Amino acid sequence: MSTIEIAPAATRRPAWDVLGTRLEGVRGSIDAMKESDLAGWNVRKVPLFFEDDSPAWDGARRDVADRYATVRTNPQTGGTEYIGVVGGTYTPIQNEAHAELLDAVLDTADAKWEAAGASHGGKRTFMTMRLPEDIMVGGKDAVGLHLVAFNSHDGSSSFKFAVTPVRVSCTNMQSAALRGAKSKFSIRHTSGAGRALSEAREALGLTYKYVEAFELEAERLLATPMTVGAFDAYAAELFGVRDEDKASKKALANRDGLMDLYRSSDTLDGIRGTKWGAYQTVTEFIDHVAPVRGRDVARARATRSFDGAAERLKAAAFALVG
């Protein structure tokens, strides 16, 4: 089994801290956007065209039908930067357009701004707020509660909120699909204080329902023992290692890394030997241990934490351990 390098838990930061700007003491959403360079983007569509260097080309540029580039103004340099490609029906919505709703959520939930920023070259933006009370799983394992507002400027998603529990001792971001409780919900583009407040209350009602369901499942997992042998089988199943001779090198490395982490990580002290500890091994592995490409390892891992693939793997791990 391979030996993995585990960064000290005290040095770890959640993905939004790595990719964004801390917003301690900031109150209004417009101020939060200015502080994190999300204000003044002026996202807009511009035509796309192509050229060809073949001998038959007449040298004239050709427009690309029903496709446009989205661009923004960089608030620091004033220059124009490319974001992505969208269809003809796509309508840009500025970051500031949701300020009223964000402020209504903050006021209704008694939450505080935590961090905000952009990822994937400006294609996606995020604003994170911390809810005032943590979950204490088993009366001892603190899980902080966060609301993350996501938007995109490349047509990949709508404006939405996601409930993101984070285990405090190791900053592992959780993802779990729970029956009858939604962790994500899209919000319509709103106008008018009354409607914004109504949607904020609806969003928070869904949030609290999910948090309650998550806490019940976490308590159940913590109370359920899991042997080392059972964890090894769990790791193999999660990464699809059913036959060592046929499994890919990547799958084997991931399985072995997960098994090594389960045995060696001090963040699992007190929960190792339970299904809750097994699931936390997976979230720690994905967020802080699994190999990534690029020189800036922390940034690459943070970006991956916001990718759908990492989130789906955590949700699959939660379903499998149950």
Rank of each mutant, 00 (worst) to 15 (best):
I6D: 01
L19T: 07
G20H: 01
R22F: 02
G25T: 08
R27Y: 07
S29G: 01
D31I: 05
M33S: 07
M33C: 10
K34D: 03
K34T: 01
G40I: 07
W41V: 04
V43N: 03
K45G: 05
F50W: 13
A56N: 01
W57M: 06
D58V: 09
R61I: 10
T73I: 01
Q76S: 12
I83Y: 02
G84H: 00
V85G: 06
Y90Q: 02
T91G: 10
A97N: 08
T108P: 02
K112G: 04
E114N: 14
E114Y: 14
T125E: 08
F126K: 10
M127P: 05
M129Q: 14
P132I: 03
P132L: 06
V137A: 02
G139D: 05
G139H: 01
F150G: 00
K160N: 10
F161N: 05
F161E: 00
V166P: 05
A176V: 11
K182M: 13
K184T: 15
K184L: 09
I187E: 08
R188W: 11
H189S: 03
T190H: 09
S191W: 07
G192N: 03
G194D: 15
A196H: 00
A196Q: 14
A196W: 08
L197T: 14
S198R: 15
A203T: 13
G205D: 15
K209S: 13
E212H: 11
L216A: 15
E217P: 03
E219Q: 14
R220P: 00
L221R: 15
A223Q: 07
F239N: 06
D245H: 14
L252N: 02
L252Q: 12
N254W: 10
R255E: 15
S264D: 10
D266C: 01
L268F: 10
R272K: 12
T274E: 11
K275L: 09
W276V: 08
A278K: 06
Q280G: 00
V282R: 03
E284H: 14
I286K: 02
I286T: 13
G294R: 06
A300S: 15
A300Y: 02
A300H: 00
T303R: 15
R304M: 13
S305H: 05
S305V: 03
L313Y: 01
A317S: 13
A317M: 09
A319Y: 05
V321H: 11
G322L: 07
